[in-house]
Amino acid sequence: MFAISTESLRKSFGRVKALDSVSFDFSAGLLHGLIGSDGAGKTTTLRLLAGLLRPSAGRIRYFRDGAPSAFEAMRPSLAYMPQQASLYPDLSVAEHLEFFRELYRLDAATFRKRSSELLEITRLGKFSDRRAAQLSGGMYKKLGLMCALLQSPSVLLLDEPTNGVDPISRREFWELLYGLAAEKILVVVSTAYMDEAERCARVHLLDSGRLLASGEPRAVLKAAGARSFEEIFIRSAA
């Protein structure tokens, strides 16, 4: 099982402080939610964790079964799904799976098993010839998730996967994430939807690059004396 923690993590882009001395603790096998409005620093955090950015200060520590691990050693077990369209509009569902299969160097038997499992749980099997550009918002996000899951990662970083997706597809997507957390995969998902915070095992509330609170959703609400997560953000802004 993998875990990640950060110590006084800072990231600046020129004069803009995207993250200001933030310490996270993403404990193993749980579904973590990075909650915050636009510009809070969610994407920067995920990109730092995925090794796509280097911290301006502070450090990120990775753990495997409780022992410290180098990033390079855990990179093959890490999957990242960017917020933007991360798929090729002119390739079909099947062609995406084939491309990522070769990218992740999966053997034929593992690929067959894994892709049929994924097509079944995402219910995209009957759309395998459809091009990504012709998929609905929800199906598109599911295909993105499927490509990320193809390599059976132990750490899954998802940047606003439910953004712009209809409520029914959102619920289905979260059910998929619960299933992953049940398999002891460390899932870190960012969202700007406050109602999704309660679906997570741990929440980390980010505002303008600062960490407002971290912990179990109910405990965070209780400690803040707030009835909802919106209230915490509104108070912080005031």
Partner: peptide
């Protein structure tokens, strides 16, 4: 521009 570059870059290559 499409954002697919990040997907490739984050793969273990």
């Amino acid at each position: 521009e499409m954002g697919t570059f990040e997907t490739i870059v984050s793969a273990p290559l």
